[in-house]
Structure formats: C-alpha cells, structure tokens
C-alpha cells in the first residue's frame, strides 16, 4: 500500500478523532448501551485501517510497530483471563465485583433506567481488556498484510 493523495490524508486526519472517540465510547459504555469490547475494538481498528490506507503501510509501520501491537494484545488477553481467574474463589468467570458496592459494584434499579457507569462488576473491566485486545489484534493483522504487500511490490524473490 502506498501513500494516497493529500485530500484523502487530510480527510482521514479530520475523521480519525471522531472515530476514536466513538469507538472508545462504545467500549466504555458497553454495559449500558449497545456495544462492548468487540464492537468498539472493531470501530477503533477500522479507524486505524483508514489511516493505514491513507498514509500507506510503510509510514504507518514507522508509527506503530507490530511487536508493540503484539505486546498490547498479549496484555489485553492476560487482563481478560486474569479477571476470570480472580473469581476463582467461587468459580472461574465468577463476577466477584457485582452487587458488592464499591468500584463497579452498584446495582441498577429494576426496569428501564439510564443506568450508571458504576455498575456491572467486572464487565466494564473485561470490556476494556477485550477492547484493547481486539484493537491490537485487528490492527496487527492489517498491518502485517499491508507490509507484506509492500514487500511483494518491491518484488524480492528471495525474501518472504
């Protein structure tokens, strides 16, 4: 993927903050409104893909390294499974924060209500972890494939 024209680049610059904000909103409000870690992660990753397409994969790769993404993904996955492990005093995946008060421990009133961010126990934390993981995972898939297409275009027979 090579760089695109200046118009495309400025439009993608303009759009990127909105996409990122929307994506992180979806991730953070996953337990209240439609959305969650996967959906928000996909939205943020699609914003990153837009930047990659606009600026070309080499330039994108100079800002975001594949090994950093893989460490981020690993951290997200470890956070998710650790949250599951922490419930192990009762059972794996036990929601040990819900309904206990304190951080994320409020119980929303029954029925239809706007809800509060401070509810749902481990769910917001899991949403964050999964969101991080999905962003890093999808971005690194596209980044690796984009870089590979760059090297393919250069036409090296002996390098994979």
């Amino acid at each position: 993927m090579s760089e695109m024209s200046k118009i495309v680049r400025s439009i993608s610059n303009l759009l990127l903050p909105f996409i990122l904000i929307y994506g992180f909103y979806i991730i953070l409000h996953g337990h209240l409104t439609p959305g969650g870690g996967f959906q928000g992660g996909a939205v943020v990753a699609s914003g990153l893909v837009m930047v990659l397409v606009a600026y070309g994969s080499e330039r994108f790769a100079s800002w975001v390294k594949e090994k950093h993404l893989s460490v981020l993904e690993s951290i997200g996955a470890l956070g998710f499974i650790s949250l599951a492990f922490l419930g192990l005093s009762t059972a794996f995946f036990y929601n040990f924060l819900a309904g206990k008060g304190g951080l994320f421990g409020d119980i929303p009133p029954e029925g239809s209500n706007p809800g509060a961010l401070n509810t749902a126990g481990t769910l917001p934390l899991m949403n964050l972890a999964v969101g991080l993981k999905v962003i890093a995972g999808l971005a690194s898939i596209v980044l690796v494939m984009g870089l590979a297409s760059h090297y393919f275009k250069q036409g090296g027979e002996n390098d994979t």
Binding site: S74, A77, L78, I81, F85, F92
Partner: peptide, 16 residues
C-alpha cells in the same frame, strides 16, 4: 476449568 485456563494463560503470556 484449570486444565483449560492454565495453558491459555501461558499461551497469552508467551509473547512476553
């Protein structure tokens, strides 16, 4: 659960 979760944990930690 542990038979599933322990190798998963090790696998997720492998890049680190």
């Amino acid at each position: 659960a542990l038979i599933i979760a322990v190798p998963l944990f090790a696998a997720f930690a492998m890049p680190l």
